[in-house]
Amino acid sequence: MSEMNIVQAINRTLRDAMKEDPDVLVLGEDVGVNGGVFRATDGLIREFGAERVIDTPLSETGIIGTAIGMSLYGLKPIAEIQFLDFIYPAFDQIVSELAKFRYRSGGQYPAHVVIRAPYGGGIKGGIYHSQSTEAYFCHTAGIKVVIPSTPSDARGLLFSAIADEDPVLFLEPKRIYRSLTGEVSDSQEKVPFGHARVVREGSDVSVFAYGAMVPVAQEAADALGRDGVSTEVIDLRTLVPLDEAAVLASVEKTGRAIIVHEAARFCGFGAELSAILAEKALYSLKAPVLRVTGYDTPFPYALENVYLPNPERVVRAVRQSLQAG
């Protein structure tokens, strides 16, 4: 066990995976000599060389397209997209190609690429260094979408992603890359996909969150706890596949659901969760499901603080839910 932050956990995990399996390699912009703009790949080029830590030209479609080719041939590429906001030149390669290779070849050509990308706001990055657009990818069949919220989950989920047989979009909450530290195991133990984490148990209300919104939900739960409200906080960890059983079990217990994400509300992941609750837990609900989210606007620069959900907004939603019945 050692204490580390999320970037360090990712860095350690990449190193361990590369040591273990010579087929694993890393490619992306500034990942080699520079060690990644967030230093997630720091030191890897020294240890594994430029053939396995590849500084690419500035082309996301080049990065993902070639990673697909490597994977078809048997390697295990881990592609870094510098910011999720810059993934779109590769959108075609991801949604039309990567996510559909297995299906459209009748299972003959599965493509397994792990795409790592920092996502989300909170670093004063403005419109193009802050967005949280996981829903675009969750909407595409054939690609898994994973978002850790702690250093230890970052490690365990990344090991799972590398070992998985399917494409994985691994979204890293850059806002808490360094601000949050925790104990991380030295072992290569995986955190399996499709298993939500109960961050804290509670009986009055369930708050569902992922990534950088987990600490926000926790802070809200702390504040509510001081007023005698018992809040259950669930970290979804993997959006695809979703741990539906954990979501339903929690709401069957508390009867109230608040969904927190920094992505825009309309057609965001919360809409899917709400639909599942409406379809499968309606009779357990004592109040309408509420969402605390980013607004349906592009992500602003100067007004980032009022765009991002904060604990106070979560508390307010919980109180609204409690008053509803």
Binding site: K124, G125, G126, I127, Y128, H129, P298, P300, Y301, A302, L303
Partner: peptide, 13 residues
Amino acid sequence: LGNADDRIRGRQM
């Protein structure tokens, strides 16, 4: 600065 006089209204870095 992204202040009230900013022509792009504080939208970008």
